[in-house]
Write a protein that binds this DNA or RNA. Structure first.
Length: 497
RNA sequence: GGCCCCAUCGUCUAGUGGUUAGGACACCUCGCUUUCAAUGAGGUAACACGGGUUCGAUUCCCGUUGGGGCUACCA
């Protein structure tokens, strides 16, 4: 039997980093077992639908290298296409007939029923239950309506939803690939809505029907779905289908241990792409949030992760999304990468999005500047036997926004004293002599002559030139920027002390 | 409130019925460095608690506590 996994995001705007991890595990499990990785779009919620949501998700997925074998994918021009045969589209909004048929089948068999309850009634019911600290849930108001009468009311156009009937007794027990045996009492589980009044199915119906029709063998998804499993299993039973195996992944968490959310930082993969993180670093970092091959090595390529991937090595508890560790992974990959590759990546990075610097600065840069700044960094590396963070350093190229300057290492007095003097000094250097050796000597002499400490001059100089707290050396930046731009930036900095 | 899941340094984690409980990030100290970063060498730091089971539990079982998820005509 061919292993088939799927990733089934909702196109609500962008790919969430948690989604990327889910996709990664599903991808790795499929590849490890020589199976297929299917991409399906779950867009049955019309209210949250975002027009280019699918495009964005695919972009991020392709960026990371998680290319679907089947379902929704890109062609060579980044047009959205579909591949594979599941008896229809891999986009749920285009499968309404299929869900309708299946819902009707459940009604015919007495496993589901029309519900005519108004949302207001359900709201009141819920409020009452909450107020009285009762378990919340549907009260079965429409469950006993005569099916023939219900059918008639529905076909007469009365607004309704379709609910599945959960058994009132017994237990649902299943074996999660990661958590082992989990059991639920059926009586506590709601008669879930499976078809909404707008004619679209809810997640619960769509996911069961599609996973079956698409021959998914392993459902890999976040832990937030664990409590829905009994409903799904009941649906499989009603349809007479065998359930796929399931693996519920631990959640990615904010620093306060709540579910990773937009409010507490960036959650979109594209945000991290824009910041200059390498895909290798993101993949490696995210893979190790909840999975560990054992041992002490932490740097793993995608292929190596695939090779080692196994549900036994997936943890059960949530993992905090720790940016400092991500930075470390990024540095490690930057260190390893050779210069040519680095320049190429930096170029792709800059070309990928014209707005990439909008948060940091504005202005022009040229390819030769880019190559130079990276080469300089690399040179500095050999000189000092250090290694670069080149992608981060390309940010010195655009003109930074002055209100982002951070002066925290120097006092205002110090800055007002030193920067104008430094500017006058640099003005005396001719354009022809403007290279880092001469700059370094000139500034060095000046520092001595004035009796300044080295740090009190070089640090502000670097900040004024780069707009950043951490950057390449000031002389290297000055050389790349040229005399005019360097002096302009120091002016800019002076006016923003 | 109900149901479900989870529990090793601050964080990500390795690990075992008997270990000096290992690594990485972060942090601290020192060194290097004409500046920050980077880098080198050290260091602080964890088995949530209470009962069992056992010669022996961090490890197995139960409970407590704590955290999280779900509890929609959202996924």
């Amino acid at each position: 039997m061919t292993i088939r996994t799927r990733f089934a995001p909702s196109p609500t705007g962008y790919l969430h980093v948690g989604g990327l991890r889910t996709a990664l595990y599903a991808y790795c499990f499929a590849k490890k077992n020589e199976g297929k990785f299917v991409l399906r779009i779950e867009d049955t919620d019309r209210e949250r639908f975002v027009a280019d949501g699918t495009q964005n998700i695919l972009k991020s997925l392709y960026w990371a290298g998680l290319i679907p074998d089947e379902g929704v994918m890109f062609d060579n021009e980044e047009n959205i296409i579909q591949k594979g045969d599941c008896g229809g589209s891999y986009i749920q909004s285009e499968r309404s007939d299929i869900y309708r048929e299946h819902a009707d089948r459940l009604i015919e068999q007495g496993h589901a029923y029309h519900c005519f309850c108004a949302p207001e009634r359900l709201d009141e019911l819920r409020q009452f239950q909450q107020l009285n600290k009762l378990p919340t849930g549907y009260d079965g108001h429409c469950r006993e309506i005569n099916p023939i009468e219900a059918q008639k009311r529905a076909s007469d156009g009365e607004k309704h939803v379709i609910r599945m009937k959960m058994p009132k007794e017994g237990e649902t027990v299943f074996n999660d690939e990661i958590r082992g045996e989990v059991r639920f009492k059926n009586e506590l589980i709601d008669d879930q809505v499976i078809m909404k009044s707008d004619g679209f199915p809810t997640y619960h119906l769509a996911v069961v029907v599609d996973d079956h029709l698409m021959k998914i063998t392993h459902i890999i998804r976040g832990e937030e779905w664990l409590s829905s499993v009994p409903k799904h299993l009941q649906l499989y039973k009603y349809f007479g289908w065998e359930s796929p195996k399931m693996a519920h992944l631990p959640l990615l968490l904010n620093a306060d241990k709540s579910k990773l959310s937009k409010r507490q930082g960036d959650v979109a993969v594209e945000d991290y792409v824009k910041k200059g993180y390498l895909k290798e670093a993101i993949i490696n970092f995210i893979a190790f949030l909840g999975w560990n091959p054992g041992g002490e090595r932490e740097i793993y390529s995608l292929d190596e992760i695939i090779n080692e991937f196994n549900f036994d090595k997936v943890g059960k508890s949530g993992a905090i999304f720790n940016l400092q560790k991500l930075d470390w992974f990024n540095r490690e990959y930057l260190k390893k990468m050779d210069l040519a590759e680095l320049v190429q990546r930096a170029k792709e990075f800059l070309l990928a999005d014209p707005e990439i610097f909008s948060a940091i600065g504005e202005g022009q840069y040229e390819d030769k500047d880019l190559a130079r700044v990276i080469a300089l960094e690399r040179e500095r590396v050999t000189t000092f036997s250090e290694l670069p963070e080149a992608l981060k350093f390309v940010f010195v190229l655009p003109k930074y926004k002055s209100d982002l300057l951070i002066w925290k290492k120097s006092s205002v007095d110090e800055l007002q004293n030193i920067l104008p003097g430094l500017k006058d000094l640099l003005s005396t250097i001719s354009v022809q002599s403007w290279d880092r050796t001469i700059l370094e000597r000139t500034v060095g002499d000046w520092v001595k002559e004035k009796g300044y400490s080295v740090g009190s001059v070089l640090w502000p100089m670097r900040v004024a030139l780069s707009g950043q707290e951490n950057s390449p050396g000031p002389f290297e930046i000055a050389e790349v920027l040229g005399k005019e731009e360097s002096l302009n930036r120091i002016d800019l900095a002076i006016s923003n002390i």
